[in-house]
Design a protein around this nucleic acid. Structure first.
Length: 585
RNA sequence: GGUUCCGUAGCUCAGCUGGAUAGAGCAUUCCCCUUCUAAGGGAAUGGUCGCAGGUUCGAAUCCUGCCGGGACCA
């Protein structure tokens, strides 16, 4: 059942519904249907809200432009509606700023607006995002996943969903062995005191480069033997390398925790690859014994040819498992451990085939919930000269980006406050702004679109960026301070007559609708656009409407309430994107 | 070859559950700080919405085919 949470649309829909009954009594159209059809008019000259009459043409046997006129006549001007008029095939509404101002700003300022019931369907949903490997570096590529996952978790929770956020770090496998191998046999550097995780990542890259260099040389065989020995020892869970794995793994986890803290991300559960390693093999063996899997060329798996998914190997000829093996076991574990109804995986689009196989295997072994598993794909981040790969070492480490951004922000914008602000506030603000730029930059594009990361472009902070929105917030915040904003001020919203003022009120009223849309579409893009549009509207208003020197106290206060409302919606919206709103900047 | 994603202004992208003159940012050219933060505002320039059909009163949006690019599978 849909919830008609938008009061403005609800009132307009009610009036249309009544007019429809009196004018075209035989037409069947529910209020819900009407509500869904109402949109914001493309420009203020035409009206504020619009209802298209095309869908009524058939049932009423008259032309849409006639219908709009007849309905307009039947609608009384009262409450929120100050005028209804037919504009061609559209029934347009002009709203009363007095009512609009009261309805919108009061709810926003009291906070009621942000705690409305928006969605009635609320299955318990698990969202798995951020699957970084230990023993590798974190780079900007990882940020897309992290920012998107973080935003969706926040958006869904806001939309009343019960969300369980989980991460799935890759702490076992050949990449670990390679890293330990280099550490043991070739590393000459001293282990640093701090940032051991990042350093370990550089060791992994060196390992790969060396192994590739020595391919085809007399060292190749030795290398392979050494790697195999390491892997075996790791599997047996004892010995020198197992101890080294335990120690170095912590370094990487420490790095991940710091990054998650920085990004303000929290997980309800960390699933480790090492934790499903052997149980997943057990499960695969059991399935084979039950006859649900078959043997082919020595490997055990499932034939999915009829679904155009090839043969999905679950146990290799050497008796080891693969990613698919683990994902099958993990999926079962997720549903069992948390009793979730939905299971969303936020993973790179290149894994689409892998997940199709996994979900199909789950379905065919009789795991009912397979149909509630959903791979939410996004396209990857690449550099101007091609794909990023920590194997090759052509990555932009995350720390690198953050530091450059913060340094740039300080020297260009914040250092001028050195006399009035503490060094700590400057640093904190720089950090918020850098984070704003990264989070907004990573979520503003459609999930299907590739992002080309160009450091030079990302360091420019004007135009449609996170900092633009933060600036709007900071400005309003300082405005409210200067003008001694208080909830008890006496305002007259009927004085808000300018287009820029009405446009802002209308925009504010749409926030919840946008968030619900993002939840349904599993994308944060429209929230990004919405906040940017809100910011733009506010900046125009700010430029053309004096507040401190408004013609009257009542107008000044109405504008102040409007400003405050914008700042609150902005803050809430930014928060859903994982971005903090600075008090000043 | 199969699957899938993308193709909208010079560049980067919104808009795609069909609807009113296709919108931003960047870049370029002009204005606007003795008024609340100019990380800002205003204006100008810039478009066969890849191409061709189809469905519809109406298509950037839906369907089919083709062209170009990416990814995955083989």
């Amino acid at each position: 059942m849909t919830i008609l949470h938008n009061k403005i649309l609800d009132q307009i829909a009610t009036e249309i519904s009544i007019a429809l009954k009196s004018t075209f009594s035989d037409v069947e159209m529910t209020k819900e249907q009407i509500y869904a059809l109402i949109s914001i008019a493309p420009n203020m000259k035409m009206g504020h809200f619009a209802f298209p009459c095309f869908p009524l043409a058939k049932a009423t046997k008259s032309a849409p432009n006639i219908i709009s006129g007849k309905l307009a006549e039947a609608i009384e001007s009262k409450g929120i509606i100050s005028e209804a008029k037919g504009v061609g095939p559209y029934l347009n509404f002009i709203v009363n700023p007095q009512f609009l101002g009261n309805e919108i700003t009061k709810e926003i300022i009291s906070g009621d607006y942000f705690s409305k019931e928006l969605v009635s369907d609320r299955p318990r949903t698990m969202i798995e995002y951020s699957q970084p490997n230990t023993h590798k570096e974190l780079h900007v590529g990882h940020m897309r996943n992290l920012c998107l996952g973080n935003a969706l978790v926040r958006i869904k929770k806001y939309a009343d969903q019960e969300v369980i956020a989980v991460t799935y770090p890759g702490d076992s496998g050949t990449h670990v062995a390679k890293c330990l191998w280099f550490l043991k046999y070739h590393n000459k550097e001293a282990i640093p005191e701090t940032n051991k995780g990042a350093w370990l990542g550089t060791i992994y890259t060196k390992a790969n480069l060396l192994l590739e260099d020595e391919l085809g040389t007399d060292k190749e065989t030795t290398n392979r033997e050494q790697l195999t020995a390491i892997l075996k020892e790791l599997e047996s869970q004892k010995g020198e390398y197992f101890d080294l794995w335990k120690e170095t793994r912590e370094w990487s986890l420490e790095m991940m925790k710091e990054t998650y803290k920085w990004a303000d991300v929290e997980f309800d559960r960390w699933f480790f690859e090492s934790e499903v390693d052997s149980p997943s093999l057990e499960l695969a063996k059991k399935l084979y014994e039950e006859g649900k899997l078959v043997k082919s060329e020595g490997a055990i798996g499932m034939n999915l040819e009829e679904d155009k998914l090839g043969f999905c190997i679950l146990i290799k000829t050497d008796g080891t498992g693969l990613y698919a093996t683990k994902d099958v076991a993990l999926a079962v574990k997720k549903f069992e451990e948390f009793g979730v109804e939905n299971n969303i995986y936020i993973v790179d689009t290149r894994q689409a085939f892998h997940f199709n196989q996994v979900f199909k295997v789950l379905e065919k072994i009789g795991f009912e919930q397979a149909k509630h598993c959903h791979h939410l794909q996004y396209n990857f981040v690449e550099l101007p000269d091609g794909a990023m790969s920590s194997r090759k070492g052509n990555i932009v480490p995350l720390n690198n980006l953050i530091h450059q951004m913060e340094a740039q922000i300080k020297s260009e914008y914040l250092d001028k406050y050195a006399d009035e602000w503490t060094a700590e506030e400057i640093q904190n603000t720089a950090s918020m702004i850098a984070k704003g730029a990264i989070n907004y930059g990573m979520t503003r594009f459609d999930n299907n679109r590739k992002i080309v990361f160009d450091m030079k472009e990302w360091l420019k902070l004007d135009g449609e960026t996170g900092p633009y929105l933060q600036y709007v917030y900071a400005r309003i915040n300082s405005l409210c301070d200067k003008l001694s904003y208080s909830e008890d001020l006496n305002a007259d919203f009927s004085l808000l007559k300018k287009d820029s003022e009405i446009a802002l009120l209308i925009k504010l009223s749409a926030f919840n609708d946008i968030v619900v849309q993002c939840h349904e579409k599993n994308s944060a893009t429209s929230l990004c656009s919405y906040l940017y549009e809100l910011g733009k509207l506010y900046n125009s208003f700010y430029a053309d409407s004096p507040i401190a020197k408004a013609e009257s106290e009542e107008l000044k206060n109405a504008r102040l309430f409007l400003s405050k409302s914008v700042s609150l919606v902005m803050k809430q919206g930014l928060q859903l994107l994982g971005i903090e709103a600075p008090q000043r900047m």
